[in-house]
Amino acid sequence: MTAARTWWTRIPAPVVDGVVAVVAVLDVLFNLEYTGRLEQATAALACAALAVRRRFPLPVFLLTLPASLMLDIVFAPFAALFTLAERSRDRRLLGGCAVLFAVASAAPWPLDDLSSHERTWTLVYFFYTLATAAAPVLLGQLVQARRDLARRLVEIEEAREHERLLHSQAVLARERAQLAREMHDVVSHQVSLIAVQAGALQVAATDPDFSEGARTIRALSVDTLDELRHMVTLLRASGGRATELTPQPTLADLHRLITTSGIDAELIGELPPNINTPAQRAVYRTVQEALTNVRKHAPGASASVRLWQADNGTAFGVTVTNTPSTRPSLPLPSSRQGLIGLRERAELLGGSFESGTTADGGYELSLRIPTETN
């Protein structure tokens, strides 16, 4: 199956179209004997229309029907019907087109009254042609299903790779959190005791040299505590290189977040730089959660991130809107707590958070923060 796919996909589309046109012309030439100009014109039109069958499959198929009515040809309508079946998911349309081809092939030309015997054979030939027309329809649907399956397998593999990455990052985050707890609960406690004891010795010492040594030990212990607190903060905030921007993300990090999100997203507008840190963090987390949801639940969609301020200056916020997905989404595991967390952040700042589907089938998140809380 892999080898067949390899050699088939290597053939350029123009080469395939050229072969189809040549075979259609040969099929017509074998049936042009004792025909008039009308029949020749319809046959030429049917062959020429095959050049655009990939772009306009239904009109091309309809253009082949007059030739099928006037001449005993099958390749041109079969090629058009196969292309239509490969691209259309409307089975009623495909069945109707197969019936139209069977009618055009079975009907006599020129159209005139038939005897009862000829009517019987016309009816028999109609069902025979209808059964034959099922071949390109089924083959086109099979090619379509195979293409969908290949795309689905690629998406499943991408989802598995994403889940493996998330799992490795979660393991790394747990290990760093555990290390941070050990450093905070054990090492920081011991260094704090050293600093306290050194301070007591410095106060109680009568020898100047002894007092200076105790002061040095106390100063080094305090510096060590500061470094340990900084390291604990970094370990708790960092979950791995793929998600690590800064321990406390701000509005300045939005551009990098959007450009590295892996989706087609744009940043519109700006907010004043004097917004306090909790508000900046809430805006950042809202954009981060929105882009993550687009990646997981709306594959192929594009998004716009709009920073805004109310005209009367009473509020500011961010609105993230994404278009509908262009590919089927995969059922990925989710804790369903992201939107709840964003709503809680907004309420802590005295603001509001809204989310829901848009009129065109997309999705929109909006965070509003009152200015007086800034």
Rank of each mutant, 00 (worst) to 15 (best):
E270L: 11
T233S: 11
S261T: 00
T233V: 11
I263A: 03
P247H: 07
R229T: 11
S261C: 04
T224Y: 11
T259K: 00
D264V: 02
T233P: 05
N276K: 10
R241N: 13
E244P: 12
R285F: 02
V232G: 02
E227T: 14
R281N: 11
R281I: 05
Q248G: 10
V287K: 00
Q280P: 04
L251N: 06
Q248D: 14
Q280W: 05
T250Q: 08
P278K: 01
L225A: 13
L225N: 10
M231K: 12
I275T: 06
R229D: 14
R281C: 07
Q248C: 09
T260H: 04
P247C: 09
N274V: 10
P247G: 08
D253K: 08
V287F: 05
E266D: 04
I263K: 03
G269H: 06
G269I: 06
G240K: 11
Q248I: 13
G239F: 01
L220I: 14
E227P: 08
G262N: 05
G240L: 12
Q248F: 13
A219I: 13
L228I: 12
P249K: 03
P278L: 00
L220A: 15
A252K: 11
L257C: 01
P272I: 03
L267T: 06
V222T: 15
A219E: 15
T250S: 11
S238L: 11
R236H: 13
S221L: 13
T250C: 07
L271R: 03
